[in-house]
């Protein structure tokens, strides 16, 4: 999932302080799971903003809506009828949602309410960690299901590097060396011989090096 973190309320106040009718727009998907932008967080942010503006003697209307997703046309269309009621929207979906909202509702300012961080997993409640950098060409088949692009600080493809010590990375003793994890996993799979095979140069044109990317699937297009 896409992992996001809450923005400090002071930053959100600074974004919207000159507006009088504000919609707080949540998303029921990834940001709900990482407890940054779901229905509950919409409620908390809206309540805090209402109190802030009241305390400043400003009359500001703050409404709450949480959509199923903010990255698909059909869900964003659900609010078309009410959008003219607002001067601004604080979207607490990921950066994708914020941008798609801005594209769809061109004349309404859309402000981000979360900081979008990475593609990751919930290791435990309150702890999310990165697993994928969406490089566009998956090599997990040859690395025992552990990604050196996302989990190695240097993105080393034939590792480990000299900075690996006791299974940890030199940049932080709490970070596992991705290549140690790969070796341990290949050993557990009894495929350690695959570790000897050199990984060829990676085609980075599918990563950000090629600019903004797109996936075109003519077979499912209408």
């Amino acid at each position: 999932m896409i992992v996001a973190d809450k923005k400090p309320i002071e930053e959100i106040i600074e974004e919207v302080k000159n507006n009088e009718k504000i919609l707080i727009l949540g998303c029921n998907e990834c940001v709900t799971v990482c407890e940054a932008g779901g229905k509950k967080e919409v409620g908390v942010l809206a309540s805090a903003l209402r109190m802030y503006f009241l305390n400043q003697s400003k009359e500001v209307k703050i409404d709450e809506i949480t959509l199923e997703r903010q990255c698909d046309h059909e869900y964003l269309e659900e609010i078309r009828d009410v959008m003219d009621q607002y001067d601004a929207v604080v979207s607490i979906a990921c950066g994708v949602g914020v941008q798609f909202m801005a594209e769809k509702y061109h004349s309404t300012p859309i402000y981000p309410g979360v900081d979008t961080c990475f593609l990751g997993v919930t290791e435990e409640r309150g702890l999310w960690t990165e697993r994928c950098q969406a490089c566009g060409h998956c090599i997990l088949a040859s690395t025992g299901g552990i990604c050196p692009i996302a989990r190695c600080a240097k993105r080393v493809l034939n590792g480990p590097c000299g900075g690996s010590a006791k299974g940890k990375c030199e940049i932080d003793k709490e970070i596992d060396c991705a290549w140690q994890l790969i070796i341990d996993r290949l050993e557990a799979l009894d495929r350690l011989d695959e570790y000897e095979a050199l990984c060829p140069l990676k085609d980075w044109s599918t990563d950000r090096a090629g600019g903004p990317r797109k996936v075109v699937r003519e077979d499912v297009q209408q």
Partner: peptide
Amino acid sequence: KILDAIGV
């Protein structure tokens, strides 16, 4: 923390 941030 929230109450501090909003001046309550």
